[in-house]
Design a protein around this nucleic acid. Sequence first.
DNA 1: TCAAAAGTGTTCAAGCTACACCCATGA
DNA 2: TCATGGGTGTAGCTTGAACACTTTTGA
Lengths: 228, 228
Amino acid sequence: MQYPSESRIMLAIDCCIFGFDGENLKILLIKRNFEPEMGKWSLMGGFLKSTEDLEDGAKRILKDLTGLDNIYMEQLNSYGNINRDPVERTVSICFFALINIQEHDIEEAKSKNGYWFDFNKKPELIFDHDQMVEKALSQIRYKAALHPIGFELLPEKFTIPQLQKLYEAIYGTTLDRRNFSRKILSTKLLIDTGEKNENSSTKKAALFKLDQAKYESQFNAFHYFVNL
Amino acid sequence: MQYPSESRIMLAIDCCIFGFDGENLKILLIKRNFEPEMGKWSLMGGFLKSTEDLEDGAKRILKDLTGLDNIYMEQLNSYGNINRDPVERTVSICFFALINIQEHDIEEAKSKNGYWFDFNKKPELIFDHDQMVEKALSQIRYKAALHPIGFELLPEKFTIPQLQKLYEAIYGTTLDRRNFSRKILSTKLLIDTGEKNENSSTKKAALFKLDQAKYESQFNAFHYFVNL
DNA sequence: TCAAAAGTGTTCAAGCTACACCCATGA
DNA sequence: TCATGGGTGTAGCTTGAACACTTTTGA
């Protein structure tokens, strides 16, 4: 038994991949070396295979194009305007991913025309990818205000000033050091490793790491960072 | 020009339709009169046509099965496990809708085997529809804590105690009348119509309506109702 | 006149905001 | 010893939580 065939549709998966270099929010884009829109910038994407679940498809695409796996990833939204793809009608399911740049090698992404852009300096993208990126940023702002996802963008050990810079980059604002520090520490989600950040020419900041157990158990405890 | 054909897939749309009867949160389900799973309960759904955008498809399905249009509706998530539909591989994009039951006639839904269940007494659903409903409730809780979407479930004119009952139903909790009233009024989103709710055998509560202009301009002003 | 639901005010505690000083480090 | 950035404390205000009394209405 099968359904009538008229409504089978091409199903694409696109990934908004975010990183953080210590100063700015970054986004990984790819220069297309195939038609349509060859030579223009786009999100990482591909078609869903008939043998894989959505999340598996998204992971496969991320892995193929960047060499990375084990990445924080979340389904964002689907896009299905009839004419969004000039070749034929295609519906795209968009995911976003958060990558800790410092600890992940993306040589493979580079070999496939991938490039990290400063989020604020990204070029115009093909199709409706700009719309996807806008939605992804808004989702990250939303989520990072309520859940501790920011850590996904930092290395395993990080300092509080680094974390603050990340939040400032996400929200495009500046925060008070003293209040930020107090608020973050009050979550009890950070463990002081006792080590110091040696890459500093002034006072060395303390390195913290996530309390994984608490992170997981409290992930859905609402409104962590509201009122940033 | 076309893409290679191997990956075209059936694309369904399913709608979680919520209502509120003054006491309980309700969900509109349909008893399937077709295979597969004939006789079992499911969400309202259908297949996306090749000539329509996603939102248009969702609206068409809602209109066909309930007779309603002009309904608050939002895309929720997509589901694509390989075996979710026993007939053939189908990806479903799920929407949720909020309906003001009192002011909308759903005779047409009834004629198509539609039935409003108390949310807490709903039967088991086909496929992965239970998962969709769970996600929809969680999304409504999330969103209603931050944005004033609750009003979509109430008639044009409503009392503050009605609104409170709605929030209590959404969160499955009880709230303090005095604090709730103060908090809601402090948003300045409600306009006192000067009328009273005549359907009461005790003190008649004041009827309010939404300040539409403020509602729209402030919709995205964060964290309205956090700390419920 | 009584029961049931609506409307309102106050107090206390917690949390947020704004702000200033001291410390560690390498140049 | 100086410039830079890290770390912490406090006072005042805002906000939320807890709680009790009065009013309106129909039975």
